[in-house]
């Protein structure tokens, strides 16, 4: 279960597969592409529970299967200079099949490892990267 930090309409998603990783239990870290199922939708203020406006605002719905990129990980990750970075939660950003983010804005900090993995579009949307 990961937080989704963009405005695509998903709030909490569940990871069902990690792409381009092999093994008994492949693990994803920052910058890895995963496949997720949307578990909870984000509600937008007052018109949140109302059906019509919600479906327009939300680009994804509960139960959708989407691709995503991990942008924060709770597991500490070593950088090339020997320092470690760790976040308090796991978070991702939904993308489409070609790799462009579905949302247009990110709400919180992302890891700088995205730069090494060529996710510059997500980095440019992010308010802060560490």
């Amino acid at each position: 279960m990961l937080n989704c930090i963009d405005n695509s309409g998903a709030a909490i998603v569940e990871c069902v597969a990690v792409m381009k990783k092999r093994g008994m239990r492949p693990t994803a870290s920052i910058g890895d592409r995963i496949i997720v199922v949307v578990q909870k939708q984000r509600s937008f203020g007052q018109e949140g529970p109302g059906g019509g406006s919600l479906s327009i605002a939300n680009k994804v719905k509960r139960g959708d299967i989407r691709h995503a990129v991990v942008v924060r990980a709770h597991k500490e990750q070593q950088r090339k200079d020997g320092s470690y970075v760790k976040f308090d939660d796991n978070a991702c950003v939904l993308i489409n099949k070609s790799g462009d983010p579905i949302g247009t804005r990110l709400t919180s900090v992302v890891g700088a490892e995205l730069r090494d993995k060529k996710w510059s579009k997500i980095l440019s949307l992010a308010p802060l990267h560490v």
Binding site: S83, K86, F87, D88, S108
Partner: peptide
């Protein structure tokens, strides 16, 4: 806490960077 997300960084003090 950056944008209300707890962030930890283990920095090597004598790193040339």
């Amino acid at each position: 806490q950056l944008t209300r997300v707890g962030t930890e960084m283990d920095i090597k003090v004598f790193s040339p960077l």
